[in-house]
Write a protein that binds this DNA or RNA. Structure first.
Lengths: 215, 215
DNA sequence: ACGTCACGACACGGTACGTTCCGTTTCTGC
DNA sequence: GCAGAAACGGAACGTACCGTGTCGTGACGT
């Protein structure tokens, strides 16, 4: 276990102060310039207390991150696969591009390369569930005939998330909602799905005027 | 400029020894555990010499990286867009997953989040050219009628590279060549391109036997 | 009321940072 | 060639942060 264990005697006040301070500093200075000593000072907490409950700076920020997002991005099912995928991907874009969680996530992704335990925790607590939720929603659309039976769903999920991560790690501007809509259309089309209403042949080739369902 | 400037008096021997030592250490210990002092010791070079020519550990590895890959992955044009995209993406997968350049690139991507100059250098020297080459090859295919006229080419490039980065940063196993082939088929299909020979409806839905053109 | 445990504080040795000084080697220009 | 300049290796420096250890205090559970 990389995140903190609970205890009857543990001070919830110190825990929250630590997580909040870590997120603040990450936003202000960037993950790489955040130190445990600075977190402790900002939180009004002893360094010893931080090390008592977390194994590293990365573990603190992962807990802060997961803490804020557990159940915060449920996968709604409106019956419209394109709409639901847009909602899902837009939440992922916002997650990875908005303070304080965007900078924190960038740091976590960095640390994953050297910290095997952190990598495993991220996979189990963040990536795995999100990937599974997206794939499950596509499977449901399959049952409803909106996606062909033999479609390669895991590949579709990677094609959806891939561009989001691509821009995030390369520090390019995040996708806006129109771009996400175009992406979703392309991915569904690549699976052989029937065009979705007015979004017909060559989705995205001709920009559509902004419509209410995007906001 | 983040990478080293040339000089008439500069010792090429020290430069090469530094770059080689940095790549070696990065492979052995992972970028995060590589120190400038260790690079200097391994290279038989003074720390001062490293700081004279590079601004940071990241700059050293970026130069080693670019040095090895400048012109090393030309974008061939066989006239078959699907084949050429497979070749291109396969080289990107290999680049990001094979020592010593895979670990080095992971470290560079990490450092980019805190080092603006490094981020700009990566964009200009690595990502930009590769992205442009892929888009140019697609544009040529467009002229030849293999890709529809109004297709969203930048989106297509992101859909191709995205999954590669997705797996790289999340430390998932890299795509094998069959998966890359399926990905390329899907992306071309999403653009409205005509199915490519036997790769017909629902590419990837039914695994094809391995064929020579993949190796 | 007593014992336990988490707490804040402070000090510690260790590591790597980036810089400075020094004496030596190597190359350039005269 | 020779003299000067520049880059070199080596060693040491002060600083920052690491992760740990110690200690006295105070809050909680029994």
């Amino acid at each position: 276990m990389i995140t903190s264990q609970s205890s009857l005697r543990r001070s919830e006040r110190s825990r929250r102060a630590t997580l909040d301070a870590a997120l603040e500093l990450c936003t202000e200075k960037g993950y790489g310039r955040v130190t445990v000593e600075a977190i402790a000072a900002r939180a009004g907490v002893s360094k010893k207390t931080i090390y008592r409950w977390w194994s590293s700076k990365g573990a603190v920020l992962l807990e802060a991150f997961v803490d804020a997002f557990v159940g915060a991005t449920p996968f709604v099912d409106t019956g419209d696969i394109a709409l639901d995928l847009r909602t899902h991907i837009n939440s992922a874009v916002k997650l990875t591009s908005t303070p304080p969680y965007g900078p924190a996530y960038a740091g976590i992704l960095s640390e994953m390369h050297y910290d095997d335990a952190l990598a495993e925790a991220v996979q189990e607590q963040l990536v795995g569930p999100r990937f599974a939720a997206a794939e499950a929603r596509l499977a449901k659309a399959q049952e409803q005939g909106q996606v062909p039976a033999g479609a390669n769903l895991p590949l579709a999920v990677e094609m959806l998330y891939g561009p989001v991560y691509y821009r995030h790690v390369l520090r390019k501007p995040p996708q806006d909602e129109a771009t996400v809509a175009t992406l979703v259309d392309h991915v569904l089309r690549s699976l052989g799905a029937a065009p979705d209403g007015p979004r017909g042949a060559l989705p995205g080739a001709v920009p559509r005027p902004a419509s209410g369902d995007l906001s």
